[in-house]
């Protein structure tokens, strides 16, 4: 299936739902790796919106990206509760372990606030990380 057909298929999947734009964008991001200008134009056309309206939504939310990044992603919580448990002291080691191979992304709260520092890879969560544990996690990502 080519890219345009896949986009059509995703849009059709959510037809008839109230406020379908966010669910569509989530599926496009998950299946195509990003929401680029071509995808915006096609979605806008299907939902009878302007391209600007769709772009406004895509650019508002942190979860949608304009370009695909095939590298593995490790999300590290940097919010207050994890700060209280020392996450800031792990960042330097995490960055050098990640290098250019792994995307290291800050997130604000994974809901594991009593057992931080916490990180997420895909749907896998990791808590009570120390420097050694975090570096091992990033290296195996």
């Amino acid at each position: 299936m080519n890219r345009a057909d896949r986009l059509d298929e995703i849009v059709a999947r959510h037809a008839g739902r109230g406020g379908p734009l966010l669910p569509i964008l989530h599926d496009v991001q998950a299946e195509l790796g990003c929401v680029d200008g071509d995808a915006e134009a096609l979605i806008a056309d299907a939902l009878n919106l302007s391209r600007a309206e769709v772009h406004g939504v895509v650019s508002f939310y942190h979860d949608f990206t304009v370009r695909p990044d095939p590298r593995p992603q490790v999300q590290l919580c940097r919010a207050e509760a994890c700060k209280a448990r020392g996450v800031d002291g792990l960042v330097e080691a995490a960055q050098s372990a990640a290098g250019d191979r792994v995307q290291l992304k800050d997130v604000y709260c994974l809901g594991l606030c009593s057992a931080g520092p916490a990180a997420r890879i895909g749907d896998d969560l990791h808590a009570r990380l120390d420097q050694e544990g975090l570096v091992r996690l990033i290296e195996s990502a």
């Binding site: 406020g19 966010l22 669910p23 989530h26 508002f60 942190h62 979860d63 997130v107």
Partner: peptide, 10 residues
């Protein structure tokens, strides 16, 4: 009831 997923905006 329908579950909707946010997109990372606090």
């Amino acid at each position: 009831i329908d579950v909707r997923v946010g997109a990372g905006a606090y």
